[in-house]
């Protein structure tokens, strides 16, 4: 659904890290960003949606399976190269009032967590736009 909207050029989709669950959350976020350095951000994203393995070994194994430079990946992971990035996203989200996950915002508006809330948000926006003519 989202991808189809993106394909039309109407929307773009962005993912921001929330680190509500401590070290496993941070490890997965760091691994994804390190994978992103080598063009595999979404491979890692999709992997972590289907696994409960948030270990260093698992991350390096995934990097290897994707034919990444594992030395570069491991150094990136071990050095926590992107810690500022992921923590910054978490912090910015918290400052914007986002704490529960997943939360979706459209054009920076709203903080919908469940379908009903999102529908209400969109309906209100639609009514507002229609009123404006």
């Amino acid at each position: 659904m989202i991808e189809e909207l993106v394909r039309t050029g109407l929307a773009r989709f962005e993912y921001r890290h929330i680190l509500n669950h401590g070290p496993p959350s941070v490890a997965a976020a760091l691994a994804t960003e390190c994978g992103g350095d080598q063009g595999k951000w979404w491979d890692f994203h999709d992997h972590y949606m289907t696994t409960q393995d948030f270990s260093r070994e698992g991350a390096v194994a995934l990097a290897a399976s994707l034919s990444l430079d594992t030395d570069q990946f491991a150094q990136c992971f071990d050095d926590q190269t992107h810690l500022e990035l992921v923590e910054g996203q978490h912090r910015a989200a918290a400052e914007a009032g986002v704490s529960r996950t997943p939360t979706v915002r459209i054009n920076g508006e709203g903080a919908a967590v469940v379908a009903d809330a999102l529908i209400d948000q969109v309906m209100a926006l639609a009514a507002e736009l229609e009123a404006e003519g």
Binding site: R12, S25, T101
Partner: peptide, 21 residues
């Protein structure tokens, strides 16, 4: 481009805040 998919100039921006864990 990393965590962003789609046209950078798209009029609608959908942001998902989430936690892999």
């Amino acid at each position: 481009a990393r965590n962003v998919v789609g046209d950078p100039d798209a009029p609608v921006v959908i942001v998902e805040y989430s936690d892999f864990q």
